[in-house]
């Protein structure tokens, strides 16, 4: 599964970068995220409950941050296991560029491989669900940062 896109976030690059590394912010923004623990500066463990078509499953995953180039880019990669529902593994290249002093363009390229029951549902469900989840994440992320900006 390949997906890429770009989002404009109403916050400066530094704040966006900090938020992307903040487990609490990520936990609130990732759709279906139940737990997210930071194991080290570059490692996290997460539990996410997802529904893809008729399959609903809880995925336990390990996430690593590599290719760190703060505050401009990183690669987030990981693997999640959902028991009989299947598994997903892959990564996303994320890069931030300034779009004026109060806004950031976040570009992402996702490459993921899904297996098991969720993969059997066919590309159209996986792709549309992935896009929907990405959309939800950025909506949440935008709101989260918009709030921070006011505080700041």
């Amino acid at each position: 599964m390949d997906m890429n896109g770009q989002e404009r976030i109403e916050a400066p690059v530094a704040i966006v970068w900090a938020a992307l590394n903040d487990p609490e912010v990520l936990k609130r923004c990732i759709p279906g995220c139940e737990t997210l623990e930071k194991r080290s500066d570059t490692e996290m463990a997460a539990t996410v409950t997802l529904r893809v078509g008729p399959v609903k499953a809880s995925f336990n995953g390990e996430v690593q941050l590599i290719n760190l180039n703060p505050p401009h880019s990183y690669t987030i990669q990981g693997e999640g296991k959902g028991g009989i529902a299947g598994f997903a593994k892959g990564g996303a290249d994320v890069s931030l560029t300034e779009d004026g002093p109060q806004a950031t363009l976040l570009a992402y390229t996702v490459k993921a491989e899904v297996g098991g029951k969720i993969a059997q549902l066919g590309a159209r469900l996986i792709d549309s669900t992935s896009r929907k989840l990405a959309g939800q994440f950025f909506a949440n992320f935008g709101k989260e940062l918009a709030g921070q900006e006011i505080k700041a």
Partner: peptide, 13 residues
């Protein structure tokens, strides 16, 4: 698919 997933596991596909 190349990874061995069945891509046509329901009457949708």
């Amino acid at each position: 698919d190349e990874a061995g997933n069945v891509m046509t596991g329901s009457f949708m596909d």
